[in-house]
Amino acid sequence: MHELSMAQGIINTVLETSEANDATEVKKVVVEIGKLAMINPEQLLFMMNVLVEDTIMEDAKIEIVDIPVEIECAECGHKGNGKVDEEDHYVPMIECPKCESNALRILNGQDIIVKSIEIEKPDD
């Protein structure tokens, strides 16, 4: 349950960038979340909606994009997307899609990235 601090980190980044670009309003924010990050996107959105009150990003549309899991398999050497089973858990089980091994190195899918923003600014 660290959605609150993550939400605050994202909002700080957005507001800093907006201010540096003389924004009057933030229209849209795109956040990428790795499928293996220990963050529930719905809870993150809930927290963000609480924290943006009375800021210039109050009415911004927040778009969340998944970052897929990339792995390197220690058994067969496969490098690429991991096979993710989300049926039972929010935290996915990962295995190699080729040989089904669990002996993997995770290359991607654990990050949280503030990708881009769309802002409104006064005419020059």
Binding site: M6, G9, I10, T13, V14, T17, N21, A23, T24, K27, A37, Q110, D111, I112, I113, V114, K115, S116, I117, E118, I119, E120, K121, P122, D123, D124
Partner: peptide, 17 residues
């Protein structure tokens, strides 16, 4: 009508840690 600008940030929130 105000100007609308797209800004690429690409900041990884996990990197700082």
């Amino acid at each position: 009508m105000h100007k609308v600008a797209d800004i690429v940030i690409g900041k990884n929130i996990m990197k700082a840690n």
